[in-house]
Nucleic acid binder design. Structure first.
Length: 494
RNA sequence: GGUCGCGUGGCCGAGUGGUUAGGCACAGCUCUGCAAAAGCUGCUACUGCGGUUCGAAUCCGCACGCGACCUCCA
């Protein structure tokens, strides 16, 4: 673990549009909230990237010694299909299609979401609250907003009064919008006649006939508005003002803007000090999104069962691929890039394996391990610059391989330092997992391999290379790679 | 239309006003019975046009191209 004092963390704050020193409200405690998935369909790859970004943040802050309370919600209440529809929400719609109870849908896709998170080694949050379990708090927040004069009830629905709020507050400060501009840019207002202003957004929606998920409220049967649950659950578990709120770039407006307005209107305090937004995943230059239909599921990516994929890629390859790009940049998916990442990850892992067996040596050129360690810390502290940190690890890998070949001098102390660094950065911080273990096979294959390699060694000793190569070639056909190293042959499954 | 962002070598992707990012691919060499792995060497870019500067891929302006948000979306 590193010491925060020696390694101050800097974070890009969407609010200020600047990189700022990260100073928690109540160090060493840090409150982190991330908008979680809506569980009405399979989690898609864009979600994985966002949750991976904040997984790295969680891991890094923890590594620095902070005590992080990480809250990531599950949206199980269902949001409206859009602002002007008849009130059927996404989960209800899906439930009708599949003839399942809404909560059955929720459970199914929550389980699926958790499976994917596990597969990609994304750590579970400290608290994973659900919207449906916080209806009372949501209703309470609406009542406070109404009491403060920033919301009004119409026909069983409640709307947030944006123009009223904008008179005295900066609605749009997060997303860089002006309410005047938005007024002139608003699209058709049909179906919105209940609202006093097209900018207003729903805090509570009356449940129309046939709407499956609804609850009683002071305004009648209905369900909460889209933005309310995050405001309620973040402040309930992290306080009226907390440190970091994260989410995908596409949530900046209106979702996060509305969260700010709700919290200020209800409790008079800005909820978040540092806003962090992860960028989008793109395919052929376009945003990968459910609505675009151009994405694939994590499962399809792993199995390769999708028309855009030449073959499957392991979860750790995908994880590493994503981490080779800064979270605030768009990342484009391509087979070539995935394959490059796969090779790179293998190289790093192989170097780490060599490091475990490396013996000290005074031969060759020296290598400054201390500088490498500092560079890795500096990269991560610079707004979570994992691609640069990984580049430094590759420098380390070259030194390790060089030492293994006798070209680089490393003392026992330096080797220990490198082992600590690689172990911490690769596994604790980047959250990578060695994949070889799962492929090693059972005792029987280990025994058979041992036998085959002994026979091959015999053949080689007799200079019967036809026989030795036959063994290696046949094994290759079976997906087993044999390599002759100076310490004898090693094998691994493809 | 409004707001914001991006445009880096064959590909993916970092980046600071002046020193090699890194990975993958490719070529040569070393090692090796061969192969693989590894090492060494090479390939050294910054959309275009102006401007600021002793000096800009990095700052400013314009142009072109692309994208995101403005509607549920991570």
């Amino acid at each position: 673990m590193a010491n925060v004092q020696d390694h101050p963390f800097h974070i890009s704050n969407t609010l200020s549009r600047k990189k700022e020193a990260f100073i928690p409200l109540d160090a060493p405690h840090v409150g982190l909230y991330v908008c979680g998935p809506t569980v009405y369909s399979d989690v898609h790859l864009g979600n994985v990237r966002t949750f991976l970004t904040f997984d790295i943040l969680f891991r890094w802050l923890t590594y620095l010694g902070y005590k992080v309370r990480y809250v990531r919600n599950i949206t199980d209440v269902g949001h409206l299909v859009d602002d002007i529809d008849e009130g059927e929400d996404k989960i209800a719609k899906r439930a009708r299609m599949e003839r399942l109870e809404p909560m059955e849908i929720v459970q199914k896709y929550t389980n699926g979401f958790h499976d994917v998170m596990r597969q990609f080694n994304i750590l579970p949050p400290s608290i994973e609250p659900t919207a449906t379990a916080h209806l009372i708090e949501q209703i309470g927040m609406i009542e406070r907003i109404i009491a403060n004069g920033y919301a009004y009830a119409v026909n069983g629905s409640v709307y947030f009064d944006v123009p009223k709020y904008a008179e005295t507050h900066d609605y749009g400060k997060l997303s860089g919008r002006k309410t005047e501009d938005q007024m002139s840019n608003t699209r058709g207002t049909e179906g919105q006649e209940e609202k006093r202003s097209p900018l207003d957004f729903a805090l509570w929606k009356k449940a129309e006939k046939g709407h499956l998920m609804h609850w009683p409220s002071p305004w009648g049967e209905g369900f909460p508005g889209w933005h309310l649950e995050c405001s309620v659950m973040s402040t309930k578990y992290l306080g009226h003002t907390f440190d970091i709120h994260g989410g995908g770039m596409d949530l900046k407006f209106p979702h996060h803007e509305c969260e700010i307005a709700q919290s200020v209107a209800a409790d008079g305090e800005a909820p978040v000090r540092y806003w962090m937004h992860g960028n989008m995943l793109t395919v052929e230059g376009r945003k990968m999104a459910k609505s675009e239909g151009n994405g694939f599921t994590p499962e399809e990516l792993v199995t390769g069962n999708h028309k855009l994929l030449e073959r499957g890629y392991s979860p750790m390859t995908v994880r590493f691929f994503m981490l080779q790009c800064h979270y605030a940049s768009t990342l484009d998916f391509s087979n070539a890039a995935l394959q490059a990442a796969e090779k790179g990850l293998q190289r790093l892992m192989a170097a780490n394996d060599i490091l475990a067996k490396l013996k000290p040596s005074a031969e060759g050129t020296s290598f400054d391990v201390g500088a490498l360690v500092k560079a890795c810390y500096a990269a991560m502290n610079d707004d979570l610059n994992s691609p640069v940190m990984i580049a430094h690890l590759f420098d380390g890998a070259r030194a390790i391989n060089g030492a293994n070949d006798g070209n680089v001098a490393l003392s026992q102390q330096e080797i220990d330092q490198l082992r600590k660094l690689f172990n911490e950065m690769l596994f604790a911080v980047l959250g990578l997992m060695p994949e070889a273990e799962a492929k090693a096979g059972d005792d029987l294959s280990a025994g058979l391999m041992s036998l085959l390699l002994t026979m091959r060694a015999d053949a080689k000793n007799r200079k019967d290379f036809a026989a030795s190569d036959l063994i290696r070639d046949k094994l290759t056909e079976l997906g087993v790679t044999v390599k002759d190293t100076k310490d004898g042959p090693v094998w691994e499954r493809a």
